[in-house]
């Protein structure tokens, strides 16, 4: 008897510790999400929201070309960015892990992620300074006489991609580096002893073992990239709109909350699909 009362008291105390955080998460994360999902089933009549409880907004999304295009623009940008970032980050992580002396590796990593700590808004603005019509690159190229007319680099998709790649190379370098240093050197030596050449060692041994790091980084890149408003807005401009830009447009000028909610739910659906696709590797990382 005594033990049960002790247990219930212990139990109540434990709930006391956990409940505040759980309540906060439910009140300000779960409920808002449900509210937003409900609003996506409503429609806007003038300034009022009318609950329709139907999927009209979702049908509209697939019918209106400019909305659907936003999703494809976002997906294209995100895949391009993820691909280029991995290609650039892998050699960097490898060089830091293999060529940089051990005691300098930590420093090298800190240096590599230093610009990560500039404000998000400021980072995109900085790229504008570099890519603008009268910016650093155009200025330098014209000075050395490579081009006569300034190149149109700002307000293009390339600018958005450059801004994103800059950010995600830092992130992927970290996750891939973490994987590379965990790998015992014997594995590669064993493969080489068994007659594999440099490329074969990389392709059959090193790459598969670092795949978890790549996938974790790629997933983070995907999630952060596809949901970002700042970078495409500042660097890409209004020539072609990514999904988050369209969401913000619904909120601002059009004050169409139901459509903004619908697009957000769709955005979240895409991220969930990406999670399912990567789940295998994300789990491996955890154990």
């Amino acid at each position: 008897m005594a033990t049960t009362t002790l247990e219930t008291r212990e139990n109540r105390r434990a709930w006391g510790f956990v409940t505040p955080a759980l309540l906060w998460t439910v009140a300000f994360f779960v409920i808002p999400f449900i509210v937003m999902a409900a609003i996506s089933l409503a429609t806007r009549k003038g300034r009022e929201l009318v609950m329709m409880w139907n999927l009209d907004n979702y049908v509209t999304f697939f019918e209106k070309a400019h909305l659907l295009k936003g999703l494809f623009v976002s997906l294209e940008i995100t895949f391009t960015v993820t691909f280029i970032s991995i290609l650039l980050a892998y050699p960097l992580a490898w060089i830091i892990a293999e060529r940089v002396p051990q005691k300098w590796q930590r420093m090298a990593l800190i240096m590599a992620i230093l610009p990560f700590w500039t404000s998000y808004v400021v980072r995109s603005y900085s790229w504008l300074l570099v890519l603008a019509k009268n910016g650093v690159i155009n200025n330098t190229l014209m000075q050395i006489g490579l081009i006569a007319e300034p190149l149109e680099m700002a307000s293009t998709r390339s600018a958005t991609v450059i801004g994103f790649v800059h950010f995600f190379v830092m992130l992927l370098t970290l996750t891939i580096y973490a994987n590379l240093v965990q790998m015992p050197p014997n594995y590669r030596r064993a493969a080489a002893d068994l007659g594999a050449n440099g490329f074969q060692v990389f392709w059959h041994v090193v790459l598969p073992l670092t795949l978890p790091g790549i996938m974790v980084g790629a997933f983070l890149t995907f999630v952060l990239c596809i949901g970002d408003y700042i970078t495409p807005q500042i660097l890409g401009g209004n020539n072609e709109l990514a999904l988050p830009q369209i969401i913000m447009l619904q909120l601002g000028r059009r004050a169409d909350f139901p459509m903004a909610a619908t697009l957000s739910i769709i955005l979240m659906g895409v991220v969930t699909l990406a999670y399912i696709a990567c789940a295998r590797w994300l789990k491996m990382e955890r154990t």
Binding site: F33, G227, D228, P244, S264, L267, V271
Partner: peptide
């Protein structure tokens, strides 16, 4: 979840 979605919710 994207910050945008948390904010909108």
């Amino acid at each position: 979840v994207s910050y945008l979605i948390i904010a909108l919710g």
